[in-house]
Design a protein around this nucleic acid. Structure first.
Lengths: 254, 254
DNA sequence: GCTAGTGCACTGGTCGGACCAGTAGGCTAC
DNA sequence: GTAGCCTACTGGTCCGACCAGTGCACTAGC
């Protein structure tokens, strides 16, 4: 016999147990977004620890995007609705530390956006279709205002279109990843896009592409919508991706 | 005239500035994985803040997976190599808080794995091909040992196969996301898979599917490899996905 | 009566000091 | 030369204090 089986004890810091308890309360729904945590001074009583420990736990929870605290707020820390901020922060760190190339990010967007369109062509509601149409309409409108002022608005409308598609995919994870990766890519190429020599032509072509994508989604032709969406993204970003990385991107275009 | 343009000043907490500085040092390479941060007492001198503030900053950095500290370690906190742990934690939290369904997660895996195979069929090296072959061989071997002991090993080999494909895709982001999402899915269905009535048949079929996928990758037929990979994943998990969610998964199978 | 202004009680952010258990590496005794 | 102890230092935790900022109740004025 091997006698009683002892498990290795891992020493758990006090603040970690606080994090766990609060995290679980949030996940279980005992704490809902908008609700407030007790004040730090209350919490130190409830958890029977010092304020430093409570604060370290709150820092971790805040870093994970679960709560937010404001100085002077008499109601205590606020439980936040989920937002992909923490996810985005992790991924942005990843992009920098791990040295993700623009090519890899764009490639990832291509496959995400392509898949979103594939699903959206199947599952979209008429309302979502209208949202996409409206976004394209706004893109067209910005062209009238001249490219200078119009560029921010154009991007916003472009984002709105892709968000609508992602929502229509019916998969929240796709939706979130689309948002996260897009914000990183946009952060990387924003200045380069602003310096684009013939931005208006790019915008005009982008609108046409979006119209084609929408038509495919409307027709329920998922594979076509996916292919067009990938092509659209490729055309929009390929100029900023090092030539050596482009073949890998084009592999997604067939 | 509108006078001088004043910008809103955002009050930045002291610990946040510390986090920023250390983060930047890591990203810029001034601090490499394995290197040590000065001790908390040193840091409070360098940053001219109290130890509480230093510690709160370290908690945040630790929550982001950038450093690790051990009690009693005379060398100070250690700078960690990037690991997707933080990313995984965010996404796992997301999965629970946001109520991601198993269907959504599996669907996401299907599109990730499919895309990885599509790219791998184009870009794989012979060495990577050999890794995939070896993984399948290990899957076969576990069948001989009987399903009871073999199941852990089978899963490990399965994971190794998918990791090899993800690596062969040449996209680190795909690779990381595959890993993150897989671990979440596995965490959700581990117990249900263990209770599978006819596990051996499932494993046998899974091996055959993997062989087909590998053949397509070897032949360089990306679209076929992608479709087979998605089918493989569907077959493996569909039984655990609520029937209502399955049609959305099947949308990825054409 | 209702509003505008004021004060207060309390919040989170920061500080400094203190103690403890644990570690690593140098020192000593063999 | 090595085994074992010792010490200096670490991170984890606690305490008490101060500050600037906030929201609310209360009050003064209409």
């Amino acid at each position: 016999m091997s006698g009683p089986r002892f498990e290795p004890v891992r020493t758990v810091r006090a603040y970690e147990r606080i994090v766990e308890q609060v995290e679980q309360a949030i996940e279980s729904g005992a704490l809902c977004p908008g609700q407030r945590l007790p004040s730090e001074r209350d919490l130190m009583g409830q958890f029977a620890v010092s304020r430093s420990t409570v604060r370290e736990a709150l820092r971790v929870l805040q870093a994970r995007g679960l709560v937010r605290s404001r100085p002077g707020d008499p109601h205590g820390a606020e439980v936040l609705p989920f937002s992909p901020d923490a996810l985005q922060k992790s991924m942005a760190t990843l992009a920098r530390v791990e040295g993700l190339s623009l090519g890899e990010l764009v490639q990832f967007r291509m496959l995400l956006d392509g898949s979103a369109n594939l699903l959206a062509a199947r599952l979209r509601t008429d309302e979502q279709l209208a949202e996409m149409e409206a976004a394209i309409e706004r893109m067209r409108a910005t062209l009238q205002e001249g490219p200078a002022e119009g560029h921010g608005a154009f991007s916003a409308a472009d984002v709105a279109f892709h968000d609508a598609v992602a929502r229509a995919s019916g998969n929240k994870l796709i939706q979130i990843c689309v948002e996260v990766v897009r914000s990183i890519v946009v952060g990387l190429v924003a200045d380069r896009l602003a310096a684009e020599p013939d931005r208006e032509a790019l915008m005009r072509r982008s609108i046409r592409h979006h119209e084609e994508v929408l038509a495919a989604v409307r027709a329920g032709d998922g594979p076509l919508a996916a292919r067009l969406a990938r092509q659209t993204m490729y055309d929009y970003y390929a100029g900023h991706v090092p030539a050596a990385e482009r073949p890998a991107l084009r592999a997604l275009l067939e």
